[in-house]
Design a protein around this nucleic acid. Structure first.
Length: 492
RNA sequence: GGUUCCGUGGCCGAGUGGCUAGGCAGUGCUCUGCAAAAGCAUCUACAUCAGUUCGAAUCUGAUCGGAACCUCCA
């Protein structure tokens, strides 16, 4: 393995790790497919957005000026592509008996509060499909005028067969049209108005009772789902931009269609690096709402779900995800979550210790080497599990200070900065103990209690000392005795 | 059926030819009034079979098992 001194990204398009070279440094364009806001996001969705949160954070750390665009799909995501295809949001609105835009607002709010809990940084721009109807109509017109779209009965379809004459439809997902053709699945047997089964709607005629619909050169309708990402990425990041991310399950057809649309409209393959995050599984199968094996974030935190033995904090979950490679599936399990919970505590405790350590004259810890290792692993396609392993190696060193290791003031500061940068800024973890009040009173009270307890200890009144510790434990406060002092902390 | 990927110790999870992952759990010891934390030491591995090689978790082939996608999906 060659020394990795610069960022390498696994590009789904070429199926290789490539050196990351932005199109217009120091600027980087990052587009991530956001949620369709027709229901609550579940933990699998969170994992995907988390992956790109770390990508964004690390690119920023490297000094790039990143414009991060993550859309909200608030119209046009049909249940299927057939003539009766119904908009997911409309359907939900009918079920909940409220306006479609109320659905959109409700679940957008929910999405924001969820990703906020997991400490995801908001994108630079969060555009919505309904806010870009005009641009979508314009793109459809470009596609039609280039001969890659056709209108039938007020709907417009992308002409995949025509496109495939000159271009490689399937280059991203590794599919070949003739192989697709050989498929015998009944659902593909057609019977709808498309000329070719692989054609996809870029404008869909709306029925009379549809609420969200717009006028267009082809009549009243809604834009096709794949189109919005092409339009909004082009608008905010340009016809060609650096990184496009999304879940593995969007690779085909969604991202494949995006490429076709951009080439069809503007003749340019839009994305230099495609990144795909893998799925969260439960007992080996993909977490999805339809299978009923998904958790909502509230259920996860409260532990109120048949598959959960207890609740897990958002940072525990974040850490759990980061301990696996984003390209691998992660299987949910209580045991693994509990291991992550303890590991995270160990990491966080060491960082705290770093502030309290009394420094020595000399230093036996090679801080530069540790920093280099962490950078190297992150440069290797955002390898967070290996980075975390390096950080744990450092934890061992930190815990050995005053035993086998010593550290001077300069290194102490450097090490502290390193941990703060990597753990808080890049991995995006944070302290999440009980809400800290500005009030000094708890600290003063605890100081008082600890002093009283220490007096009992000096008098060898172990009964009282243990009673205080036990009673505090019931209040979720833990006391730890060190050689000369005692410390206290809130327990989870 | 097609395409792609995966199978590592009790659990999770890195690792692409030789040398250490890491976390959690276990065992022994040190420290401690006890406990907790921490440190030191230590035990469980590379699905199966065959091949290439001086040497294979890593490369090749076969077998078994699992997953994702194949127009709802993050």
């Amino acid at each position: 393995m060659p020394e990795i001194s610069s960022l390498h990204i696994y590009n789904s398009l070429t199926r290789k790790k490539e050196v990351f070279a932005p199109l217009n440094p120091p600027f980087v364009g990052l587009y991530v497919c956001g949620p369709t806001v027709y229901s609550d996001v579940h933990l699998g969705n969170v994992r995907s957005f988390l992956t790109f949160d770390v990508v964004y954070r690390y690119l920023t750390y490297l000094g790039y000026n990143v414009r991060y665009v993550r859309n909200i799909t608030d119209v046009g995501h049909l249940l299927d592509d057939s003539d009766e295809g119904e908009d997911k949001i409309e359907k939900r609105a009918r079920l909940e008996k409220i306006e479609p835009m109320e659905i959109v607002q409700k679940y957008t709010n929910g999405f924001h509060s969820t990703v906020n809990q997991f400490n995801l940084i908001p994108p630079s721009i969060e555009p919505t499909a309904t806010g870009h109807i005009l641009e979508q109509i314009e793109m459809i017109q470009r596609i039609i005028s280039n001969g890659y779209g056709y209108e039938i009965n007020g709907s417009v379809y992308f002409d995949v067969k025509k496109y495939a004459e000159k271009h490689n439809y399937g280059e991203l997902s590794g599919r070949k049209l003739d192989e697709l053709l050989e498929q015998t699945r009944e659902e593909l047997a057609g019977g709808d108005e498309k000329r070719f089964f692989a054609d996809f709607a870029i404008w869909k005629k709306a029925s009379d009772d549809t609420i969200m619909k717009w006028d267009s050169p082809w009549g009243i309708g809604v834009p096709g789902w794949h189109l919005e990402c092409s339009v909004m990425s082009t608008k905010y990041l340009g016809q060609e931009f650096d990184i496009h991310g999304g879940g593995m399950d969007l690779k085909f057809p969604h991202h494949e269609c995006e490429i076709a649309q951009s080439i069809g409209a503007d003749g340019i393959s839009p994305v230099k690096y495609w990144m795909h995050g893998n799925m969260l599984t439960v007992n080996g199968t993909k977490m999805s709402k339809s299978l009923g094996n998904s958790f909502l974030p509230e259920e996860l935190i409260s532990g109120d779900h048949p598959l959960l033995e207890k609740g897990y904090s958002p940072m525990t979950v974040r850490f759990f995800f980061l301990q696996a490679n984003y390209k691998s599936t992660v299987d949910f399990s209580n045991e693994a979550l509990q291991a992550a919970e303890k590991g995270l505590k160990r990491l966080m405790d060491a960082i705290k210790k770093l502030d309290e350590i009394v420094s020595s004259e000399s230093s036996s810890i090679d801080v530069d080497s540790l920093i280099k290792k962490c950078t190297k692993s992150m440069n290797d396609d955002f390898n967070t599990p290996v980075t975390i392993a390096h950080l744990f190696d450092g934890v061992k060193l930190i815990n050995s200070i005053h035993h086998f290791q010593e550290i001077n003031k300069k290194d102490q500061k450097k090490l502290r900065d390193h941990y703060h940068t990597f753990v808080f800024d890049i991995l995006g973890l944070k302290e999440e103990n009980i809400e800290t009040s500005n009030d000094e009173l708890p600290n003063e009270l605890m100081e008082l209690i600890i002093n009283l307890r220490n007096q009992s200890k000096e008098n060898k009144d172990w009964g009282t000392a243990d009673l205080i510790r036990d009673e505090l434990k019931k209040l979720n406060i833990s006391i730890k005795d060190n050689k000369d002092s005692s410390t206290w902390n809130y327990e989870e």
